[in-house]
Amino acid sequence: MAERTEMPCHEVRNVHRSFWTGGQRVDVLRGIEMSVASGALTMLRGRSGSGKTTLLNLMGGLDRPSAGEVMFKNRAIHQWSDRRLTVMRRQEIGYIFQTFALMPLLTAWENVELSLRMAGISRTQWKDRVARCLELVGLTKRIHHRPFELSGGEQQRVAIAKAIAHRPLLLLADEPTAELDSHMASHIIAIFRDIVEAEGIAICMTTHDSTLWGAADVVYQMADGRIVTE
């Protein structure tokens, strides 16, 4: 079991994000201050439009702040080039989306392998790591099935295994339980807790499901582009 640590993996410092549309400026994030600790499950909760997904995109280097700092392992990634950010995303960050983002013609095993290939992991490590990740999500008996042969919950579990295969420091999940029933949603969160303990990584996810908040180490309430409670 990985040792729990409270050291911050990710810090967002006075971050603002604005967009221009129809000649008007829309302020999506307004002075966000937050951190995500290694070995902890952090949740962002709030209504649609509160800025959760925009914040997650900034944390993952998929977008840049209009002002403020985005720090990942004490590195100011908001100042990095697109090329450097691409390498970081492939090697140090895992992503999970509402849509499972699996390759439809590949088996569960092959989908997880793809993550290792993209991260440049040596092929000699693939077999053991893929087996380990699919074991963590409880899919050892479904490794040869393609996405269309799996239930929604099983597809999401493959997506989780794929997201952690390259041993990221940070896992970002945008509404990962939105398409699942309450039972399967609880099961996915239990898997996240197992991953936090077994892998020692930081997980930050967005959700509007109040039944899941109790499983988090930290919950940030967002409203109108601000953190209103922790």
Rank of each mutant, 00 (worst) to 15 (best):
A101M: 11
R47E: 14
G94H: 05
A37G: 11
R30T: 06
Q79M: 13
G94R: 05
Q91L: 08
N57V: 02
R75F: 03
L29N: 03
M88E: 07
L58C: 09
V28S: 00
H78N: 13
A67T: 11
Q79C: 12
K73G: 12
F100C: 07
N57R: 12
V12H: 02
G61I: 02
T21I: 15
E92V: 02
W20G: 14
F97P: 01
V36C: 01
R84L: 07
L44F: 01
L62I: 14
R47H: 12
L56M: 11
A67W: 04
M34N: 10
R90P: 07
S48W: 03
Q24I: 11
S50A: 13
T54V: 10
N57H: 12
E69Q: 15
L62E: 06
P65Q: 06
T53Y: 02
M43K: 06
E69G: 06
R75M: 14
L85G: 04
L56K: 04
V26D: 03
G46C: 01
R64L: 13
T99R: 12
L55T: 07
F72P: 03
P104S: 12
L102A: 01
F72I: 07
G60Q: 12
P104W: 02
V12M: 14
T21K: 14
N14R: 10
T21C: 14
R13Q: 15
R89D: 05
A76G: 12
Y95Q: 11
N57P: 08
V28D: 02
F97E: 05
Y95V: 04
S48I: 04
G31W: 01
P65A: 15
W20I: 13
S66D: 08
Y95D: 09
A37H: 10
S38R: 12
R64P: 10
